[in-house]
Each structure stands twice: as C-alpha cells, then as structure tokens.
Design a protein around this nucleic acid. Sequence first.
DNA 1: ATGCCGTATGTTAACGTGCTCATTGTAGTT
DNA 2: AACTACAATGAGCACGTTAACATACGGCAT
Lengths: 348, 348
Amino acid sequence: MGRSVAGETGAAAGRRGTRAVSMADVARLAGVSRQTVSRVVNNQACVVEETRKRVEDAMDELGFYPSFAGRSLRGGKYGCIGLCMFDITRAGNVATLDGIVSAAHDCGYAVTLVEFDEGGPVRLRDVARRLAELPVDGMIFNTNRAVEDFDEFKPVPGLPTIIISMKEHPRCTTIDSDQYGCSRMVVDYLRERGHAHIRHLAGPEGSITADFRLRGWADALDVAGLERLEPLRGDWTADSGYELGVKLAQDKDMTALYVGNDQMAMGAMTALRTHGRRVPEDVSVVGVDDSLQGVVPHNTLTTVRFDLRERGKRTFDHFFAQMSGEERVEAVRLPGAIVERATVAARP
Amino acid sequence: MGRSVAGETGAAAGRRGTRAVSMADVARLAGVSRQTVSRVVNNQACVVEETRKRVEDAMDELGFYPSFAGRSLRGGKYGCIGLCMFDITRAGNVATLDGIVSAAHDCGYAVTLVEFDEGGPVRLRDVARRLAELPVDGMIFNTNRAVEDFDEFKPVPGLPTIIISMKEHPRCTTIDSDQYGCSRMVVDYLRERGHAHIRHLAGPEGSITADFRLRGWADALDVAGLERLEPLRGDWTADSGYELGVKLAQDKDMTALYVGNDQMAMGAMTALRTHGRRVPEDVSVVGVDDSLQGVVPHNTLTTVRFDLRERGKRTFDHFFAQMSGEERVEAVRLPGAIVERATVAARP
DNA sequence: ATGCCGTATGTTAACGTGCTCATTGTAGTT
DNA sequence: AACTACAATGAGCACGTTAACATACGGCAT
C-alpha cells in the first residue's frame, strides 16, 4: 500500500544490479581526488589542462554519469517540475504540454508527467502527495475537470504550485486561456455586424471550459440587452454538432450561431446547409479553438484562436518566478483572437 | 555551458530556500529515532501502534514528505523513466505518450519527458546524455524523425533503452505500429475487391512513417504484379491532399487511391468529387490513422486504425521486462486494422 | 536465579556529490 | 633566503535515507 511497485522491484540496486560508476571510481582510475573529478564535471576553472584530459578519458572509459541522487541530495533541488494532467489526449492539452516542456527545457528543467484518471472523484491533495514524493521542485496542475477539494487545497510547503484553470484559487496562481472572454469577444464581433439573434451550441455539462464559454456568451447578451434563447449542449463531436444543428435549422430568427468548439461547428454548419440555410448568407457561424486547420480541406470557419503553446510557456514562467522567490498569487487569463475566415456575414 | 540554468539558480537550497522537513525533524518531535520514522513511512511491521500514531501525528504537523534524493541515493533507483519525444504535438504521439504514462503509473513509475527539437541534426547520443543525468531508471526514445547516429548509438550501460521506431536497431528493442504492413494490408484489401489500378498519395519526404507506408504499397503492388505509377507526395494536410487530388482526378484508369493519412484523404476525396469522379463508385479511397472520427460530421472514410495507446503500453511493458533482467533485443511491429466505412466499392 | 527467545527500538555506516577549508607547489618580489 | 601571491589539488564533512547490526526489555522454560 502506498509504496510503488517500482520500489519493490528492489533486489536490483542501482543501474541493473551493478552499482553505477561513481566519481570515486573515476578518481581512482585517473589518479586524482574525487573533488577534482567534480570540478571537471562542473566545468570549473582551476584544473590544469592535462589533469582535465586524464579525468575526461577516465570518465569516457568507465561510462560515467553523475548521479542525480547524490547531486540533488547535496544541492536540495532536482531541476524537475511535476506536471499533473487529467487527460493528455484532450485537444488543447498537448500544445500546452509542449509549451511547458519547451519552456522548461530552456531553463534547464525537465518535466515529470503524472496522469490521474482514476474513475473516482479527484482530489488535488492526493495528486500533490504523489507528486511530492517524486523528484520535483514544484508542481503544475491542469484541472480542466472538476476536482473535489479545489478551494481548500493547500500546496505543499516549499513547492511552488501553479494551477491551469479558469477557476481562481485562494492560495495558488491560476492561469488559463480566457474561456469566458472569448465568448464576449465573439458576441461583440457579431453584434458589430448587425446580429441580434445569436444562439449558442455549448459543450457538455461538467466541462468547466464549456461552462465558462457559455457564461461569457450569456453575460454578453444580457449586457447588450439581447434576447437569449436556451443554449443547446453537445458532446464536442462533429456528429453531435450536426444533430443539434438540425434542430437549430428550424429557428428562422437565428442569424448567428456561436459554437463551443470547431468540430461541433463543422457539424452544425453541415446540418444548416443540408436543411436549406445558407452559411453565411442566412446564418453566420463562429467556432472556437481553430482546430480544423490542415484537417479539413478549404477550411473557411471563422473561429477564435488561442495560443496554447504560449499558455504552456507562460505557465512555466509563473512557476519559474515563484521558484525565484516571487510570492504573488494571481489569476492570469490569456486572451484569444478571432480568426476571420468566411462564415460570418454582416446584416444589412 | 552544459550546466543547467536550474542548477545555477543555486542560492535557494532545498524547497524554496528553507531546508525541507527531514526524518530527523520528525523523529525529534515524536521523540523517537530516525529509523523508527523510516519504518513508519515504509509501513514496516515491528512498530507498536502507539509509537506509530505519535510519528504519524508528527509527520502531519510538520508536513513531512520523504526526500526522493535521499531515498534513491540509498536504493539506487528512482522509479522514473525518461522519455524523449521529438514532437509531442504530432498526431499519433499523444496517444502513445498517454499509453506509456498510464502503463508506467500502474507499475509505480513516473515519466520524465524531454523534448528535442533543436533545429539542427539530432543525435541519440546527446539525448541519452541529457536523460542519463536526470533521475531515470531507463529511457524510451520516439524517433519518428531521422537521427544522425541511429545505428551506432549505444545505450547507457545499466539503463534499459527502448526505441519507438520502424527502423531496427542492433542493440535496442524497437517497437512501432506496422507502418509497412498496413499498406500491404490495404493493397490486398483493394485487390480482393477487384482493383488493379491502385495509386498512392504519400506523406512528405523525410518522414520515416511516410517512407515505410509508401514502401509497403510499392512492394505489395510489385508482388501482385500490378502496374505501379509514381506516387505523389503531400505534406500531411488536407489542403495538400486536395491539390494533389485534382491531379489524380485526371487519371481515368485509377480505380482506387490509397492515401498516407486521413487528412490528405479527406482533401483528395473532396477534389475527386469536385472534379466529377464519384467516391466510391468511380474511385475507392482508403486512408490511414482513423483520425477524423468526431472531427468531421458523418465520417465515411475507410481507413486503417492503430491502437496507439496500446503501442505506448506495449512500449512500457518491454521497458519493464528489461528492468527485470530480460536481455532480448527484438523488433516489435503492431498491426493495424482496417475500419470499413463507405469509401470503398468492389469492382465488377 | 539463570538463560533464551522474540519484539520494539536505537545506533552506525554507507550511498554519491559538492562545498569549505587546508595543503602543496610554483613563481615572483623584497 | 624569506616572504607573499596565486594556482592546483586534496581532505573532510554534510545532505536524507535505510540496511544491518546492536541493545533493551519482558516472558517463559529450566
């Protein structure tokens, strides 16, 4: 219980049974002290060229790599950052992961990835516990799924913690693409083009992203004093978009449709056209994510693009700032940008 | 040079400047020896209930987490596996990553991810060097891109190494989806349905996957003694598929088109239809990857599906076997399966 | 009472590295 | 010759954990 299976493989100590080559071994072969080897490894001055050469040859001969354990035991830090994602395969997450990994790489950090998709309810506390026993200097959580103990969660002391989430947290800096603001932006964009009957096809209940996108749309309509019909809810797939698009085709007042992601938008658009509504002449359609580029030929969907790689980079930057002593807790929301293609028309 | 920036942050030793809570601290507070704390942490017997309770309370009060460094310094292993991917965002890679992470999790391992997309040519040696200095018990490389020193690469002694690659390696076990076999399978599938003029729209030059898929197609035609016209080469995007599809529409002999991925197939199909060739009545189309499901409404493309998550799981399994002493070097190729939809018709 | 056994706990040493301080060696200055 | 200045190297310790060994204690058979 609690102990890792890896830990129990036991018998084989070190690298496959044999103790790994240590500095002492190199020192012995090169005929110098361990300290001199250490200096060579860390590229310090004050080592005469001839000695350095001898040490380097010895290292090559023995296949020496400095032990991370020894090094970090001394130094107290690992140069690794723990990242917990709840579903890597979810569309946006890969790009974010990529951004984090590459920003981390630039600062000499590696990223240790942990997934947490145990059927039951998720508690940040459990995830943090698991991560804290790994060689990490801090943690990043990506919680685009509801977690049980979000608000009362306390980060592990000494381990800077950043949460990728639209929900704000009392103790940790949160960062996310502005899933709320993008909807207000789209509604304003459509209003400026004369649309007053703007409907919404949202993502599934239980998705925080879907909820914030929906809320942004609703608030924007309310603020503008426009009529707000009940939004429909799909499951992010193109087919669900098609299905609901068939229903929406009945609504002859609707002049614009804002869809919670591009795949459903694709489906809805197909349904609208199949049922005699022209896009964009009769109905303008806007999606979010810009995920169809390259996937579909002649992609014409007007949509909102987030720079998710940038989101990852920024996330790491905040982590790094905290590592460097920054104490501030903020809620960073990164704006998207509308990509104008050909599915929006202005009303007379 | 060579040293990590993380290492140079220096000043802050341990967890945010303050030395983390150690077993000694817990022992002092609980009024026991460090060894007893260790026993409690590792759930060993021979600790009387009352003592255990006192230690656990002390741990909670101080917020103690065992130090990974100290632990692995003693034990010699980390419970982490190093993974190098050259482009996480490439379609198949996420699912593979997911499979590896989840299989690793089940065995108590975490995955430390490193990306390597420095503009220049890649050498496995450099990647291995970087990974070997991290807290890992072994490594996995995902080399779907050409590397300079593939054949002469020697794994770090004591660190089991698996390569995800279609190319076989003299010293390491390789594993990959059977990018060659899938093409032979498709050609046979089309031949059985009476097709004799089967053309191929391949991925870009320089892509190993594209090369193997192309080679499988070519060999299958040669073996069957069928005419083999020059394949066209796209860049994986739907638009390039469309563009080349326009050219292919001129070829009135062609009765079947095998496309290197689904997105290009999507484009090619659209082009064929736009230029008066019915699919599947005039031309049958087959893709690879099954990547359009959920993305496009009413997906009807017949394609080859690989279980990429399974590929990840199998990869980890091989790593784990080597960790447990298995020495065999193999080349594992995981077959795909044809997903029959509606873009293939039998010829009379 | 003596000796033995088993259980609970403490003590010691070792893992590999890198910092601090000490020592040696060399050259230049007085 | 005696001194300082500096470069190159070595010795020792500390980091946190745990395996192996050592000790203390109570119960039981002799």
